[in-house]
Design a protein around this nucleic acid. Structure first.
Length: 262
DNA sequence: ATGACTGATGGAATCAGA
């Protein structure tokens, strides 16, 4: 199973790029973030015509997440991250597909920090940690896939000293991420490539992509019952190099589900 | 410290992103 997470930065302005990517890579599961489209403006027919079954949670102007599956529809489990009925931002969609629980998430950016947006980010993180603990306890094969808006360590930032006070890299943010991982999750990309410089995002500003001034903020965390299926992980950087790209690149894992079926 | 760029909204200028 090829499972991808991709922050598209606008599903409708990125539709051509997404369809091209689906055609050439034929992923089995795709988690999308930053649809930036209300529920009724999701390009459902174009996605179906491309051979995918979508579920999505839209929102006007900002946020929005979707899960696309190739071999039949996913079974939706949660729409919205549990734990705060007043939270109206579309940042979390959870579904089951072929025996894998897929959580597609778009963790808040949190800037400027400190401030209310940073408080919201940390509170959201605590709810994710609670959900992570539930999934861990349930023991189901699960993947937390998405834009976490966290660089976990120094090697995940082109110039760490410049990011120390930023909401994506502040100690509180990294601490929350590590507390989540320490429940027993496997950081797929870092596990497969322990020492490599790996980025998933490059700013539109300052020629960041050409300078390789990037960040690793899109992550695929595997539960202990799914981790033995991990066969590969990477970033499809060529997508970021194309015309009119998202600022993120698709990030993927290859899973051998037969290896955990026994 | 600031601004560079992009998308959505709405139909200009502003907000948000990271």
């Amino acid at each position: 199973m090829l499972l991808v997470t991709f922050n598209v930065n606008g599903i409708n302005s990125r539709l051509g790029a997404l369809l091209q990517y689906l055609e050439e890579r034929q992923p089995d599961v795709v988690c999308l973030q930053e649809l930036k489209a209300p529920q009724e403006k999701f390009p459902e027919q174009a996605i179906r015509d491309a051979g995918y079954h979508p579920i999505w949670h839209g929102q006007k102007s900002w946020n929005g997440v979707a899960i696309l599956t190739r071999d039949g529809p996913a079974e939706e489990i949660h729409r919205g991250l549990p734990g705060d009925p007043l939270d109206e931002q579309s940042r979390y969609l959870e579904a089951a597909y072929q025996g894998v629980l897929v959580a597609c998430l778009y963790l808040p950016n949190g800037n400027p920090a400190p401030g209310p947006k940073f408080d919201y980010k940390l509170a959201w993180f605590e709810r994710l940690i609670l959900r992570g603990a539930e999934l861990m306890k349930a023991g189901v094969p699960a993947v937390l896939a998405g834009d976490f808006n966290v660089m976990p360590t120094d090697i995940d930032v082109y110039k760490p000293e410049r990011w120390l006070t930023d909401a994506l890299f502040r100690p509180e943010t990294r601490e929350a991420f590590h507390r989540l991982v320490d429940q027993g999750w496997t950081d797929s990309l870092r596990t497969m490539h322990p020492d490599q410089k790996i980025y998933t995002f490059w700013d539109y500003f300052r020629n960041a992509f050409d300078r390789d001034a990037g960040l690793r903020i899109d992550h695929l965390l595997l539960s202990p019952t799914l981790a033995p299926a991990l066969r590969g992980a990477g970033v499809d950087k060529f997508v970021r190099a194309r015309e009119k790209p998202s600022d993120h690149a698709p990030t993927w894992v290859e899973l051998d589900l037969a290896a955990i079926a026994r």
